[in-house]
Write a protein that binds this DNA or RNA. Structure first.
Lengths: 168, 168
DNA sequence: ATACAATAGTTGCCGAAGCAGACATTGATG
DNA sequence: CATCAATGTCTGCTTCGGCAACTATTGTAT
């Protein structure tokens, strides 16, 4: 007999029902497809500039001060450790990022954007913002705000509870 | 001079602004991270049953009648052609799916779920639904409905317009 | 009937991501 | 001081998805 739990307590809101469940209604599926579509479009924008979406996002995170080290990037971008290392290899090779061992904690490699890196962020940000605006053009201000809020709420739920049943 | 267009017309709703834009506000970023998190959790659920999330989703699509052929699956799941072929190899090898050349159109391969495939869908659906419910427990009925609606709206926008700037 | 485009499926190739293991370093504990 | 867990980074291995090329088949146009 399965116990329906989700981290802290019992499930009260039964949004989905086994009888009526349909794949196209699943939030997971919607996220998967919309993310895939959006990523493809984003790559199409960045590709002509010789940079991938994740690479640019890494530069952006650095530019925003959300990350100073590789570990920071991993956490901030929800990205694999090894993948980040290899990505930084490429970004360093292309002269967008510099790596320097920290003197306080010699495990840490401090990351810094070069002028070229800053420029790449600044150059592509308008394109990216514009593309997002174009995509969301059919959304009212309220809808846009609500979507952003709900996605953030979902993200918070994912980080705190995760999906129930995984530990059963 | 860049023209701000998005498929059919000029952008009117400037949800994002280059000056105030921040990565954590970007819908693309939110989708990326929440999808990654959710996928990871889903895999954790399916892994003990020796099946991946995409594999199970394929079985589900077949079970729902959303797909009869490999091409159908590609479109329905927004998945690569070759990847689907190889996935079907595995599913067939494990006895979840049968492939049979169509006699009407001998290019197509008709897919069918085996009893084991049906059983796998039926067995894991409750777990999946329950996990989703647990995750969305903090969402009110209205919030849940709105999130679903907005994601579907986003998906529609992606499929019709795509991201502006890609063709520029 | 022939030629050509379009579609369905398969395969090889490449790049990227996830995972595990290794190494160095730090901090805490005995 | 010795030990050990924890953290940060890097590397090898494996898997998987996207892309392109190829074959086979169908439909269409000349």
């Amino acid at each position: 007999m399965r116990q329906i739990t989700a981290g802290q307590g019992t499930v009260t809101n039964q949004h989905y029902n086994v009888k009526t469940f349909h794949s196209t209604n699943s939030v997971g599926y919607l996220l998967k497809v919309s993310h895939a579509q959006m990523l493809a479009r984003a790559e199409a924008i960045f590709a002509p500039n010789g940079i991938s979406f994740v690479q640019w996002m890494a530069l952006l995170k650095l530019s925003e001060g959300q990350a100073q080290t590789a570990s920071d990037l991993c956490r901030a971008m929800c990205h694999d450790n090894g993948a980040v290392t290899r990505m930084l290899d490429q970004l360093e090779e292309r002269g967008y990022v510099t790596r320097q061992r920290s003197v306080q904690d010699r495990r840490v490699v401090e990351l810094a954007l070069t002028a070229a890196g800053e420029q790449q962020v600044a150059a592509l940000k308008p394109q990216f913002v514009e593309a997002l605006n174009g995509l969301m053009d059919g959304f009212s201000k309220a809808e846009f705000a609500e979507l952003t809020r709900l996605l953030n709420k979902l993200l918070l739920a994912l980080q705190t509870k995760g999906l129930a049943g995984a530990e059963g």
